[in-house]
């Protein structure tokens, strides 16, 4: 299993623990990743507000780089998945537009055919690695842990452009993975809602209230921790959690794990190597329950 790998800005910035975790977990699972070091930020949908064609060109460039390697593209960020998926859909359904983009890419000697497969790590886990194989590699079952899956938006919507017609089960993958790892998924309403991150600077109160609502709901349903495939959600749910608690007027204290960290724990990877102590909200509750030392 080889992939062109787009780590996203956040795993190389404010969430280095995500990068560390995915590298180790992929190694364990036999996923070979060729990092696209020259690729740019996807623009996270924000860049397209100002200059859609710029965002499309930059992403087309990334796709062309992956295609040049002859590999599918893997990302570890829901937001990247959403933006890349949507732009790829646009290219696939508008040949004239794609050829205009290709004219620009030609200056760099790049060309994009429109046929790239783009997959978030979560989809790779379920569709390419396979749940059976994943189960067979679990050495430290996460027994006794109640994990709330938090999808966030961009790995779910817009479903049409993210291939849900062909893969209707993608909206249940987190639960499946949690189960395979030996933990118990916690069902809650907010799991597919927005974490609030995109408006943290525009409407901080709403942003924090969104995070707070989901965190408290998951907690009230018995979650020991929450897992997310999106580092931006992670920022709002983890780094902003103390402030979200402030807005909601009650303590929260719910550890938030990146998806690869959760997988890594079950595969027996050292929590410290995945920098579980790098979080704002302590993850000790998780490691203690699993009786692993950090």
């Amino acid at each position: 299993m080889r992939y062109a790998f787009w780590p996203g800005c956040v795993s190389r910035g404010a969430c280095p623990e995500l990068f560390e975790a995915v590298v180790r977990v992929s190694d364990r699972l036999g996923i070979e990743m060729i990092e696209l070091k020259e690729a740019s930020c996807t623009g996270a949908g924000v860049l397209s507000e100002q200059n859609p064609e710029l965002a499309d060109t930059l992403n087309g460039r990334t796709f062309a780089m992956a295609e040049k390697l002859g590999l599918p593209l893997m990302n570890i960020c829901s937001t990247c998945q959403g933006v890349q998926g949507r732009i790829n859909y646009k290219f696939q359904n508008d040949a004239t537009y794609l050829s205009r983009i290709n004219e620009r890419l030609a200056e760099e000697g790049l060309h994009y055919s429109g046929n790239l497969e783009i997959k978030n790590f979560l989809w790779v886990l379920v569709e390419d690695v396979g749940l059976d194989k994943l189960r067979s590699m679990v050495v430290r079952p996460l027994r006794g842990l109640n994990i709330a899956p938090f999808y966030g938006c961009y790995i779910l919507r817009p479903s049409k452009e993210l291939g849900y017609a062909e893969h209707p089960e993608r909206g249940k993958y987190l639960e499946k993975v949690i189960e395979v790892l030996g933990a118990e998924p916690v069902d809650f309403y907010g799991k597919s809602k927005c974490c609030g991150f995109p408006i943290v600077t525009m409407n901080r109160r709403n942003s924090l209230a969104m995070a707070g609502d989901h965190l408290l709901e998951a907690k009230s349903k018995g979650a020991d921790a929450m897992v997310t495939p999106c580092p931006l959600c992670h920022l709002n749910l983890d780094a902003q959690q103390p402030d979200a608690a402030g807005i909601k007027g009650q303590p929260i204290g719910l550890p938030i794990l990146h998806l690869p960290q959760l997988v890594g724990l079950a595969l027996g990877i050292d929590p410290e190597a995945m920098r579980l102590n790098n979080h704002i909200v302590s993850t000790e509750a998780v490691t203690e329950k699993l009786k692993v030392k950090v």
Binding site: C153, P158, I199, M202, N203, N206, M210
Partner: peptide, 12 residues
């Protein structure tokens, strides 16, 4: 317009 959190629910 700037209060939209870009969650795609309305498109969906």
């Amino acid at each position: 317009i700037w209060d939209c959190t870009h969650c795609f629910e309305c498109i969906e």
